[in-house]
Amino acid sequence: MSTRKPSSKELPIGAVVTKSSMEYETGDWGVMKPQTDLEKCTQCTLCHYFCPEGAITMNDDGYPEVINKYCKGCGICAEECPVKCIEMVRTK
């Protein structure tokens, strides 16, 4: 898919950002995705705090949920999980 990029005249000066990072879906960057074994999860929330993209939220039951739209598959969550309930799985 190709989109026409804005001309210099259409861009705001100062190189300020014109789109929210919410629209910048980084989920297709990587080849791995985290898979969580909720049986082992202790709800410690470390994965949520360590995720550099903010792509792990804690749901109402207190368990982590990965937002695949933004997850780059870096594996930091799996590395940091103290009970090793997150496994990185190749998806591409």
């Binding site: 705001p12 000066i13 100062g14 300020v16 950002v17 014109t18 789109k19 929210s20 990072s21």
Partner: peptide, 13 residues
């Protein structure tokens, strides 16, 4: 200040 269109809409630079 001039006005620019940022990611939250029109605003002062």
């Amino acid at each position: 200040f001039i006005t620019v269109k940022g990611h939250m809409g029109e605003t002062e630079l």
